[in-house]
């Protein structure tokens, strides 16, 4: 990609124009996101299949998850997407202060999301519903999981940990990208003519958000809460 120097547009040697460079970058990230769709797609396929095969167990296990934390996390992540979108706008309109502030805000919201997610993971250890490592639910949790079959409930938690774990990994990568972006923004590298890295990172961040938009209903809302 391109190396930018403050205040002007640097065009990498393989490109003819800044338009070409910008379009190549955008197309590149969209193709990468298509790859990511298929990467998560394997997990979604497996999840959909087992949910269809073992619906009672999956619904029961889903009700173990804390719907309030899930909903709050969804709102947090959507807010971070909102601030990310505004960051791109700030870069487009060359508002440097706003750009830095919005990037920091986005990172904070991402961190809050991961914190809440971490707390939920902790809860799973307390409830002994971590597949393979510690799967021995007791008391009320056991009573709720037992009717659907513990084996298949464990399968649900496998998917829960794999899917949210892979998602969290993408969040962490995203935080790293945002941090680099923030440093470059503080170094005044971006301007109205050159903001492709902000846009590209933004697209990645929104994509990670979209994955969560689907994980939330699939994992937390399956069986209903009535």
């Amino acid at each position: 990609m391109s190396e930018a120097h403050s205040g002007r547009i640097h065009i990498a040697h393989q490109f003819e124009s800044s338009d070409q460079q910008h379009e190549a970058g955008t197309l590149g990230i969209w193709i990468f996101l298509a790859t990511e769709v298929m990467f998560f797609g394997g997990l979604f396929t497996g999840y959909a299949l087992d949910r269809w095969l073992y619906y009672p167990a999956f619904a029961a296990a889903s009700r173990i998850l804390d719907i309030r934390l899930g909903a709050i996390n969804t709102a947090v992540l959507l807010t971070s997407s909102f601030t990310m979108a505004l960051s791109v706008r700030a870069a487009q309109t060359a508002k440097r202060g706003a750009l830095a502030l919005l990037l920091i805000l986005t990172m904070l919201l991402g961190a809050v999301f991961l914190g809440i997610k971490g707390f939920e993971y902790y809860q799973k250890f307390v409830e002994h519903v971590v597949p393979s490592l510690d799967f021995a639910p007791q008391g009320e949790v056991l009573a709720r999981l037992a009717p659907g079959g513990l084996g298949h409930a464990q399968l649900f938690f496998c998917f829960y940990f794999f899917m949210t774990g892979l998602h969290a990994l993408h969040m962490i990568v995203g935080l790293g990208l945002l941090f680099v972006l923030l440093l470059r923004a503080l170094g005044s590298e971006f301007n109205a003519g050159y903001y492709a890295p902000v846009e590209v990172t933004g697209l990645y961040w929104h994509f990670v958000d979209i994955i969560w938009i689907f994980l939330f209903p699939l994992l937390y809302l399956i069986g209903g809460r009535f």
Partner: peptide, 16 residues
């Protein structure tokens, strides 16, 4: 981890 997504003995499905 022997978690069972592909292992029939643990409820999984090798054809997946």
């Amino acid at each position: 981890f022997q978690v069972g997504i592909f292992t029939p003995a643990l409820g999984g499905d090798p054809l997946l």
